[in-house]
Structure formats: structure tokens, C-alpha cells
Design a protein around this nucleic acid. Structure first.
Lengths: 346, 346
DNA sequence: CTGAAAGCGCTTACAG
DNA sequence: CTGAAAGCGCTTACAG
């Protein structure tokens, strides 16, 4: 057995060049198909690549070419049923465009204040970044935008005055359709709303759609009908337990997302109330589980995954110096099932 | 307004050095706290860093220091309730150890056969990689291991003969406890099993635990009692529909994971069967939803997130040249609820 | 405690 | 179609 080498250091482009009897420039051209190379020369290069098991060093490439080939994603945390489809869309979108995906889950954006090199993701290691909701401080978003760094926002608007492309879906329109249905088809007049986390823009627009529908039908809006759902099943469940104790005087509740609707349903069931007879329940997002609930949940289908794909595409445009759309709102769709009171079979 | 610069190119370490009146070596030492530097000098350097808005180029650092500071993760696809907690654990673990996370969702490992530079993740852009189940071809795992590249496997064993650290949890033991409970407490003698995807090792060991329990109690094992659940609610639902049509002659079914148990419950409910009176149902994983089902699902709690953290830690050990454990099996825990036939309130 | 200089492994005008 | 050479922005012995 031969002496063990400390670092069996990887072959470099020079090793390949030497073995193929060409210059490193030629090897580079062959590998990157960056310029015409004689067929016979190219073959010798590939043969050398195979023989040595050569893989180009990414850092060296990045340094020499001034592009990382990497897109960054900042998210607040990895949880909930929203997360998997969104990440799937982003990863597919990014990959199809030839980029790698570097992700950073930033549970506490404020903690980065005043740190020396605040973020693990930025202009130093990516060609552009996607920022989900409020996972990155406005200060940092502004700084990056000012230095001309490509940025796309997901499910949030840019800070005032900055033209940064934003991708989401039509929350307000979807909510409007949903509440219109409750009012027009079922005749409910007292409808509650379970809001998502404070500052969540998806929740904000859903609430706007809800209010708009009430107003359009001349129904009074009672602030007491809006409570915290947190886009979370446990938060929503606790809220409904309280609400029931306080005396629940509504006919239907629009739970801000399907996950919180789940908590609502648990709370109602445990209180011995029937859905939709005693209280109709509707949600938003149409997660896979929703059609399997008892009763199946009436909700709004949100193109979560598609939004991720589109965001990746917009970002690639920006990186390539092309124009990107300031605002992309993907359409949402009403999914009528049983929990609103409809008698749909299957 | 001043002339717009094409590329407002970022400040470099030389710019900082010039402004602070020191050498680039000193700037590097200050920034990396790599060597003692006079307090007064350091202050001048930091002041220059702030004034210029300097952030060190990651590629240049990587090239010069021969480390990327990045850990790679290869997964087959982003879906299911298993995914979010696993990724959360990995991201937290990786981040706490000072690394970035590069992820690659590889839906079709075989497609990479014979490609020139097969994988977007590898020794060229990461210091080490975590490989989940069968997301990477054995050939590639073997190649990476042979060149001494740090690797940790998640929820799978290494290819024969290779000593690559593997992290998972005790599927067999958990399943054994679960089935023992069904037999000893409830007296079921005919128990079915809904297997996960072919080649899924978690599923394999769960099945082994199931069989071991039958055998230990002198119960016959009937191959017809094992059907495909796919770790997927729709697959499991379809399977149960078929099984009911064929004539279901079991008293309890162990659905390979909680997601498939969900499909089982839907199928039974739609067939008008009661759980657990007509058929007991148990699962594995204890996803958040499970305790909210009707009836609440008896299952085995799997430390999915913790396994991710541990895997990151093992990989860091390997990268730092320290020893890593060949096999880490985190403990699982029986969660008795109602779907097995127990009368647990709350 | 500090600096001059080599070197990391590529890409890319420039020249031929 | 091909090569010699500069340069990307850092880190790190080496010397003092």
C-alpha cells in the first residue's frame, strides 16, 4: 500500500491541460463551450478530464468570471404547509435557470442590527437574492438595492420608494370571491376573520378582500369579528376556544389560511358544534389536506409553488440585465367544498 | 446627478487597506481575527470597512483558503410533512456550526448517469455533503467517499463496504413497540402493514419491527397483509379502497407513516367504517397534524428534526478531521392516542 | 505587530 | 483554432 497522502488534492485545470497537451485556456474553452475548438483537441481534453476525474473549482470560476452562479433565498423559518410547495417552486425555478440555491432561515432579523458582516447571504456570495416576507430588515433590503444588487421580493411589497420586483398572488380578489360566496349563496351576514401574523401582507390583503365584500353588500363591519389566527392551527384553536367562551355571535368564520382553519375545526368539534350547520368555516391556500378534512374545507387555491417559480424567473431576468416586472400577482381560484354549507358530493 | 457607472464594482480588500493606511494582510487579519493586531490599527481598519461598505468576496476567500464554508444537501424532492422539520434541523445545525447550506433537490438520480459534470453539488463547491435516502446514485457516493470527501447519510445505510456515517432513528424498535401494543393490549391478531416507497430504508426497518412483533407473539405472518402505502396519503387511500373491495380481513393496520395513515382514515370513513371499532389504524412519525385527527392517531414519535441537527454535527466533525460515529440511531417514542382503540381522553 | 509577495484555480482579452 | 499572460480578491507562510 502506498504512502497515504495528507490531502489527496484535486486535479486542476493545469493537470488536465498538461495531460491533453494543450493550454489551460483551451481546456477552459472546451469545458465551457465558450469558443470554437477543434473537434480532435476537444476530445483529448475530455479524455484527460475523465482520466483525472477533474471537476472545475467553483470558487476559482466565480472569482475569475465575477459571477457565483448562485441565487440566495432568505426565509423567516422553515415550517408550515406553505413552506414545502414554495421551496419546491423556487428550487425548480432556480435550477432550471442554471443556478444553485443557497438558503438562509433567519428567525430573528432584528438581531443582525449592527453586526459587522450581518448576513450569511448577500452580494458576497450570490448573484441575486429572493426575500420572503419580513425575513430581512428593510435597512438591508435598501442597502442591497442601492448598490445595484438584484433582488426579488416574495409575498411582500418593497420599502416605500424602491422599485424592487415583487411576486405574490391575488389575496384580496380571492378573499373577495370567497366572502361574496358566503354572503350571496348562503346569506350569512355575520362573518368573522382570523388574521395571520401581524405585518403579514398576505393576511392584510385577505382582510381587505373580506372587508370589501362586506361593504359591497352593505353589511356592517364589526372590529370584534377580527381575531388573531396566526396562520397557525394552535393559535387559531386557542382563539376559537376563547371566542366560544366569550359568546360567539357569527355565522361563518374566514380563517386566514387553511392551517388555522384546521385549528378552528378542532375547537368547534371539541365544543360539540357542527360545521357548517352551527358555524361555517372557510380558509385560504388549499393545502393538500384541505379536501380531506371533515367536512372538506371550502377555500381559495393559492399558487404557492408557481409564485416561487416566477420569482426565480424574475430574478434571473434582473441578473441578466433584462427587465423584470415590478409586481406579479398570480391568480387565485375559489374552491367550493362542504365547510361553507354547500352540498357538493365528491 | 453624476454619471452612472456601469458596474458600481464593490470595494475590495485593497481599497480598505489603502484607506486605513495598512497592508491587505493586516486587513485580512483584522477581519478574520486571525492574528493579534494593534487595537488602534484594528479600529482604523473597521472604520475603513464601514466607510466603504466593504464585504469580503466569498469566492476569493474560498479560493485562497481552500474551504467553501458551505455544506451541501441532496434530497430527492421537496414534499411531504417529513420535509420541513428535517430541513429545519439541518439548516439550524449547519448554521450554528458556521456553515452555509446549499441544497439540491434531485428528482431523478439516474438521469445523471454519464453526464459530464454530473452534480450541481460536490467537492467543487462544498466542504462536505449530506445525502438523504436515495437522492444520489451509489456510484457518486462511492466516488466522493473514495476521494476523501466528507459525507454523511441521512435515513440510509452506506453502500456495502464503505464506512460513511449514517444518521437516522430507531424505526424497528419503534415499530416493535407499536405492534406489541396492538397485540398485547388490544389483542389484535391480524394486523396489516402499509409499506413506504420501495427501497425506503425507514420503511424497511418499520416492516422488520412489525414482523418481529408478530413472530415474538407466535402470530402467523401473511404476505397478503402487506400492501403499498407509498408514505403518501393518496397512494394509501387508493390501496385501502382496493383492499376493502377485495375483502378486508384484518383488525388493525399499521400505516407506514402518518401521511399515509391520513389516506387510510379517509378511505375508511368514506366506506362507512368506524375507527377503531371496525379497524384500528396506527402510523409513524407523529407529524403535528396527527393529534388533531378524528380520532387522534396512535403513532410513534420520530425525531426528524433532531436527526437533521445531528447529521450536520457529524458532518462538521468529519470536515474538521475529527472522528464521526458510523451509525447514529436516535430514539423513537410510542404515542398512544385513540385510533388504536385506547380510551385516552385529552 | 506588520508588510511584501506568492499563490489559490480559474477566465478572458489580446495576439497570432 | 490556440497560447501566453494578466488578473479576479483574497490568505498565509516568511521575514522583520
Amino acid at each position: 500500500m502506498p504512502e497515504t497522502l495528507k490531502t489527496p488534492s484535486r486535479p486542476t485545470i493545469s493537470d488536465v491541460a498538461r495531460r491533453a497537451g494543450v493550454s489551460t485556456a483551451t481546456v477552459s474553452r472546451v469545458i465551457n463551450r465558450a469558443a470554437p475548438v477543434a473537434e480532435e483537441t476537444a476530445q483529448r481534453v475530455w479524455a484527460a478530464v475523465d482520466a483525472l476525474g477533474y471537476t472545475p473549482s467553483a470558487p476559482a470560476r466565480m472569482l475569475a468570471s465575477d459571477r457565483t452562479g448562485t441565487i440566495g433565498l432568505v426565509i423567516p423559518e422553515i415550517s408550515g404547509d406553505f413552506f414545502a410547495p414554495m421551496l419546491r417552486g423556487i428550487e425548480n425555478g432556480v435550477r432550471d435557470l442554471g443556478y444553485d440555491l443557497l438558503i438562509y432561515a433567519n428567525p430573528n432579523p432584528e438581531a443582525h442590527r449592527g453586526a459587522k458582516f450581518p448576513y450569511p447571504l448577500g452580494e458576497h456570495n450570490t448573484d441575486g437574492m429572493m426575500v420572503f416576507t419580513d425575513s430581512l430588515e428593510e435597512e438591508e433590503i435598501t442597502r442591497l438595492h442601492r448598490i445595484g444588487f438584484p433582488l426579488v421580493l416574495l409575498h411582500r411589497m418593497p420599502p416605500p420608494g424602491l422599485d424592487i420586483p415583487s411576486v405574490g398572488f391575488s389575496n384580496k380578489f380571492g378573499a373577495r370571491l370567497l366572502i361574496d360566496h358566503l354572503i350571496e349563496v348562503h346569506g350569512y351576514r355575520r362573518i368573522g376573520f382570523l388574521a395571520g401574523p401581524p405585518n403579514n401582507e398576505d393576511s392584510h390583503w385577505r382582510e381587505m378582500g373580506y372587508r370589501e365584500a362586506l361593504e359591497a353588500h352593505g353589511l356592517e363591519f364589526d372590529p370584534a369579528w377580527v381575531r388573531a389566527g396566526g396562520f397557525d392551527d394552535e393559535v387559531a384553536q386557542a382563539t376559537m376556544v376563547d371566542w366560544l367562551r366569550d359568546g360567539l355571535d357569527i355565522q361563518a368564520v374566514f380563517s386566514g389560511d387553511d392551517e388555522s382553519a384546521l385549528g378552528v375545526m378542532v375547537a368547534l368539534r371539541e365544543a360539540g358544534l357542527r360545521i357548517p350547520e352551527d358555524l361555517a368555516v372557510v380558509g385560504f391556500d388549499d393545502i393538500p389536506l384541505s379536501r380531506h378534512l371533515t367536512p372538506p374545507l371550502t377555500t381559495v387555491r393559492a399558487p404557492i409553488e408557481a409564485a416561487g417559480v416566477v420569482a426565480a424567473r424574475q430574478l434571473a431576468n434582473l441578473i441578466h440585465g433584462e427587465i423584470a416586472d415590478s409586481l406579479t400577482l398570480l391568480p387565485t381560484e375559489l374552491m367550493i367544498r362542504r365547510s361553507c354549507g354547500c352540498h357538493i358530493y365528491k
